[in-house]
């Protein structure tokens, strides 16, 4: 029992982030939390401004997408089971991230943590299909289970 725990701790220390999948770990990335992109009311963090245009890795949860066979979904910091487009009353959390995937993706259940890697884009953008307005996005994104 003690052995197991010690090994887990050692791994966690070595990887920096215990749950990151092997592939992303191998690339030397550390998944950041969504909130690290923001600094208060609708302001981007220094990290976000420095990383604009670069590929970064972010952990979070896939909000239930509006349509199948899409290349767009919203990453939330906590699991959110309500489809924000279907429920008019749904309250969007402030720190979210719009994800545009490289190819059509398979939907992941809302409560399964994922890590997403993509190019960071800043600035207002209105999704032509859903009308969803995002301030920050990952483009050409890929994701995996955390």
């Amino acid at each position: 029992m003690t052995m197991q725990t010690t090994r887990r701790r050692a791994l966690a220390l070595a990887a920096g982030f215990i749950a990151a999948p092997a592939l992303l770990r191998a690339q030397g990335d550390e998944a950041i939390k969504l909130r690290e992109l923001y600094a208060g009311d609708n302001e981007f963090s220094e990290f976000a401004r420095d990383s604009e245009g670069e590929r970064i890795t972010v952990e979070g949860f896939m909000a239930p997408p509006l349509q199948a066979d899409s290349t767009f979904f919203v990453l939330t910091k906590m699991p959110m089971s309500v489809c924000p487009f279907c429920e008019t009353e749904a309250e969007w959390p402030e720190d979210i991230l719009a994800i545009y995937t490289r190819r059509k993706y398979r939907v992941v259940p809302f409560n399964r943590k994922i890590v997403v890697r993509g190019e960071l884009e800043l600035g207002g953008y209105r999704d032509p299909e859903t009308g969803f307005v995002s301030l920050v996005r990952l483009a050409n994104a890929q994701f995996d289970y955390a």
Partner: peptide, 15 residues
């Protein structure tokens, strides 16, 4: 059950 460390569990956004 997802694995979780003591540090992760005490994060402000942990559920």
């Amino acid at each position: 059950r997802p694995d979780v460390t003591n540090e992760e569990a005490q994060d402000i956004d942990y559920v």
